[in-house]
Every structure is written in C-alpha cells, then in structure tokens.
Nucleic acid binder design. Sequence first.
DNA 1: CTGAAAGCGCTAACAA
DNA 2: TTGTTAGCGCTTTCAG
Lengths: 388, 388
Amino acid sequence: MSILSAALFFTRAHLVAALLTGCTPLPILEVSLNRLRTVLPQETNLTTIYDVAKAAGVTAATVSYVLSGRGSISQATREKVLKCAHELGYRPNLLARSLTKQQTRTIGLVIPHIINPFYAGIAETVERNAYTRGFRTVITNTYEDERLGQELLEDLAARRVDGIIALPGGLSLAAIQSMLKSGLPVICCLWEEEGQNIPSGVGLDFKRGGQLVARHLLELGHRRLSIIVDTRPDGSLDHHLRFSGFTETLQDAGCPLEPQFIAHGDSSLESGEAAAHQLLTQPERPTALFATNDLMAMGAISAAWKLGLHVPHDLSVVGFDNIALSPFMAPPLTTVNVDRDRLVTLALNLLLGRIEGKQLETPPLLLPEMVIRSSTAAPAPERGPASP
Amino acid sequence: MSILSAALFFTRAHLVAALLTGCTPLPILEVSLNRLRTVLPQETNLTTIYDVAKAAGVTAATVSYVLSGRGSISQATREKVLKCAHELGYRPNLLARSLTKQQTRTIGLVIPHIINPFYAGIAETVERNAYTRGFRTVITNTYEDERLGQELLEDLAARRVDGIIALPGGLSLAAIQSMLKSGLPVICCLWEEEGQNIPSGVGLDFKRGGQLVARHLLELGHRRLSIIVDTRPDGSLDHHLRFSGFTETLQDAGCPLEPQFIAHGDSSLESGEAAAHQLLTQPERPTALFATNDLMAMGAISAAWKLGLHVPHDLSVVGFDNIALSPFMAPPLTTVNVDRDRLVTLALNLLLGRIEGKQLETPPLLLPEMVIRSSTAAPAPERGPASP
DNA sequence: CTGAAAGCGCTAACAA
DNA sequence: TTGTTAGCGCTTTCAG
C-alpha cells in the first residue's frame, strides 16, 4: 500500500460525508460532529462550542478564543459569541478541555475519614486554599482500608488530577511511590518517618506532642497516668510517636506508665469511650488520661460522665489535634494543637510548586503546642483507704 | 473552493507527516500521536493505549477491548496486552474515556459545610452507597454562599457529573432549575417546600420534628422554654419549620414561646454557645432550650457549663439531627433523629434512576423521631425569690 | 478475532 | 481578526 493510497483512504470518508450532505467543504468538520451520538438513557442535550459557533456564524476556534479570553477578537464578534453562548446555555466541557490542555486544575486530597472533625477541618482548609489558587479539590476517604486507598489513588490518577495531598491512614507507601513514579506529584502530610523513605511533604513533631502532654500532667502533680492509643496495623504511625513521647517522658521523670494503664482505640469516639471505661473501672483508677486524639478524648469524657466521675476533679483528660469541637466540650478540652493553616499552606506550596515543575525543599517539622483548657487540673487529694 | 481542494487540504498535513517520518501509511495515526505535545512543566509521561498497543504488537482498539473486557479476544493476545499494560504502568485516562462514553460514572454532592458532622455523615453515606453502585462522588461545600454554590454547581456540570444530590444551604432554586433544564439530573434532599416548586427529591417532615421536641419538653413539665434557631437568608429554610412546629405546639398547649426566649444562630457551635449565653443570663432563665441543630445544642451545653449550670438539672437541652457525636456529649444529647441511611438510599435510588432515564416518583416525607437521652429531665422545683 | 477509522468537545499553532 | 487543522486518549461501529 502506498502513501498515496493511504491518503485516499483517509480522505474517502470525508468526501463521502461532504457529498452526502451536499455541503460546501468548509463545514465538513461541523456536519460530522454530533452525529451518530449513541442514544443515551438520559437525554443530555449539552451545547458545544460548535453549536455556539454555528449560531454566531463563526468557527469553533473563535468561540474558544473569546471564551478563554485569549487571542484578539473584535468586540463585535466577541459580543455576538457571548450572547449566543448565553442563549444556548452553553457550558464548557471540562473533560475535553482537560484532555487537550493536559491538566485538570484539580488536586486530590486523600484522608482516612471525613467524619473525624480533624480531617474535616483539613479538608476545608485545603479546599478553600486551593480554590483561591485556582484549583478545585476532590476529597477522598480511605476509611482506613489500604485496598480502598490504593484504588482511590489509582482513580485520582486516572482522573488526571494535577497532584495529590495524602494523609496517612489507609494508604501504603508503595501505592504512593507508584504514583510518584508515573510522574504524579504527591505531597505527604503528617506522615511518619520510621526510618522509611517518605516522599516529600510536611510533617509534625508528634513525639514532642506526647512529651508536652506528659510534662503538663506531671507538672499538675499527676502520678497515676493512663493513655488510650490508636495502634492499628493499617492506621497511621504517628500515634506511636505520640505514645513514645509520652511514655519516655514519664519514664525519665521516674514515673513510668503502668501496663494496665495502657488501652487501645481506633481513633473513634466509640473506641475512646470503651477504652476509658475499661481504664476507669479498674480497682485503682488513674487520675489522668491522655487520648492520642480528641475524638477518643471526648469518648473518655463521656465514659467518665457515665461513671459519675467529674472531669477534671476526678480525672484529667488530654486530647490531641485541637479539633473545632474541643473548646465546646464540657469541660473544654485540654489538647495539643496542630496548626492546620500552616500545615495546609506549606503542603499546597509544595504541591503547586511541584506541579509547576519546581523541586522545592521539604520544610522542617511543624511544632505542636499545648492548649490548656479546663479538662485538666491537679489531682484530687488522695483519700483512698490508706489515708486518714 | 471546491470539494476536491478541501479534501486535498485536509490531507496534506498527513502526507507531510508520513513523508517526514518515512513510515508506512498504516501507522499514520500512531506516529502523529504523542507528537508535539506542548512541553509541560511537570514531566508527565503517562502511557496511553497506543503505547501498550505498540508494545503488544496490536492496535489500540484491541487493547481497549481487552481492558474493557468487551468483545472477543484470543487468550494469547489478551495476556500479552495485559502484560504490556502492566509493565508500562498503564493507567487509563478517565477524561478521555468519559469524553467518548458521554458519562463519568460520577455524581456530585453539594452540601453547606463538611465541618458539620451531620453533613459529614451524609457525605460518607452517599460516598459509600454510590461506590457500591459503581459511582464515585465528588463532595462540594458551598459554605452557605450562594455565589459559590452557583459556581460549584456550574463546575460540577462542566465536569459532566452524571447527576447531583443537592442539600439546601448556599444553593438557590434558580441555579438548580438551570441544571435541570440542561438535562442534568438533580435530586434535592431535605429541601423545604414553601409553596415553591421544588424539584424531585426526598424530604423530611421538619415541622413534625419541632412538634416532637415541644411535646417532649412539655411532657417533662417545662413551661419556660427557649429556642435557638438558624434563620439566615442564604441558609436552608427547614430551620423555620423546626421553629414553627415547636412554637405552634407550645401555643396550642397554652404555653406560648416568649419573645425574649428566642435567639438566633448560624448552625455553628460558636453561635450556639453565644446564643445560649444570652438566653441563660437573662434575669429569668428558661428551664429548657431547643437548638435547631445538634451543633448549636452542643454550644448551648458548653455555655451552660461555663455558667456553672447543670444539664439537665438546671437546664434541659434538645438538639436536632442526631449527629454521631450526640451520644457522646456530656450529657448525652436528647435530639431528633434523621434517618440518614434511608434518606441517602432513597435519594440515590431516585438519582440513579433518573440517570438511567427512569422518571421515578418522589417518595413521601421521611418522619423524624425523638431520641431521648440524658440532656433533658423534668425542671428543678421552682426556688425563685417568690417561693418560700 | 483484530484492524481501520471516526468521533467525543476543546485548544492552539499556523495560515490567511 | 478569524479560519483550518491536528491532536488530546479512548470507544465503538464496521470491515475483513
């Protein structure tokens, strides 16, 4: 087959189309469009730029130009096009646009669970921040399931998001690495290095957070401390750090954490309540309790309430995250603040930079800070059987 | 210009391309692909089906067939294609797929504010439910801003979501109608009819909810009732119904709501606390308080706590929504349950039905139900200055 | 069972 | 200032 015959082949269909419709050659493209569209269940009669172009008596390119504000278009045609577009209820097709432009101006945010106000807060901050920088964000929940997480990551990539912000919990490092390898920028936030090679991102000094809590409680005079910690396999590792910062500080203070005062949860309210109940119904109760997130702390306060214990008089409670609810608990929760605005700003800088090809430096770990409210106080004076 | 010259025009570039690359005519499509791709900032080297096809020694169509599982492909080529796809790290481009298939298998969910656990719960339910039915969902927050809401709706349409579930708050009826007009299915959930012509959806009998609360409090013996209600212009109207159900019932019981016992909030914790503070620092305090959502109720409990008032002894508090947190407040909140699972299931049935072209009937209003927990009790016996 | 080709809606380089 | 054309990556007839 010669090159010439190939050219003929390629052309034939067009010729036929032109002949069949008896049109002048110019609108060849036009007549062949919107033809043979497979009959859709839902009658979607979306207008295209071709429709607008036809109505305005110009070409699709012209319409594209006026719509994008690029190129130089006479005032007259601009107005006419705009008018037609409006009248036809034209709405651009972002799929097509993104396909040609090779970018979606969309980022993906992967979090464990939107029901946790900590993540909801992050999501809001990311969404708003990204929006002002011209990006839409699609929020994605792993529900702490690595299989799902992997799938969702693939899906985001398949949707060609321009970049991803990934929080730990339901996301394997391998999955992320795979994205990175295919050239998709991923920024890891609050991820925990454990000797592993975490891709660039912005982290927080969780260990220090645990230390702060221990110190605060110790300073108040507590000696019988307890902890509720989230240590699930698929979960994020940072809870381990909150834990070790806490225990090591106690250890150093000569007041090691007793094994029966360690309980486990899954970061949920329910688990916090259950764990606290278990902790508080032991023969000798702890006088203070550190839950490695605010939701579990809230559960703990609830457990105390149900046992008729007064917080902070009978039990001091400390959380971690400083979610929006914390100041409104009864009592307001003492907790560890994570500067979400800063976190998100840094992460977005990193991500948008990477999207533009810049290879920015990973910023230093953020420092958590104690927020002392009313759920902690000095322990009540000992009035056990031994005291007078 | 004749038809013939047009044909020549159309062909020339192809000829040139073929000549330049010196290829046999068949792979014209192939050689011209992935050429001249504008240099992108981020080096995205995504593989396409053409790459896979080339590697496997077949055509793109064949690759498409094996990947989609459609058509009949010999076991041999299937395996070879699959292998190549895997080795090349092929990831489908959903933009392109959606563009040709004229559907995205994605629905949009528009809510006011994800930080409100009520909406977070809805979002989770929708996401999971849709997922099992083969749809991804993109969550969108209006932040109660109608301008933003309108824009986001447009954006969802532009992304060609297959359908939208819209909750009130930051969404104008006009905006929705406009979507509907262009053929995009929209299901309105928890929307409030006010004589207006609400598009199909699933609603809840909010008024009845307000009545239930009033009855409950009345039955407990309360006579000095108060309310915190969200009545913002851009907000949803259902709070008005909760309000009128409440007041009318009180009225009927011969115990009308006093004007100074009506306070306003914006559905947030902060506003609930502030409004409650105002209510509770009046010379004569109410003995019960109904907040038209749980978040404001939580704020109210917080306000009471800060004023040294005991809930429910000094003040009964009732919320609305029954968010996941409610059972874990201190005390556990008495509230009105909205059956989210049912709500979402119905909405999704409606929406997916509409997407498939079926015109299903609007289901009857859901009925709210009282959930009595520990934040309500009989009022403490009167011990004001007048009593002995 | 596989290949060729058209088309989805839009953009952008180039030509006119 | 506007038009022509190729191409983004994929699906889907229609041929063979």
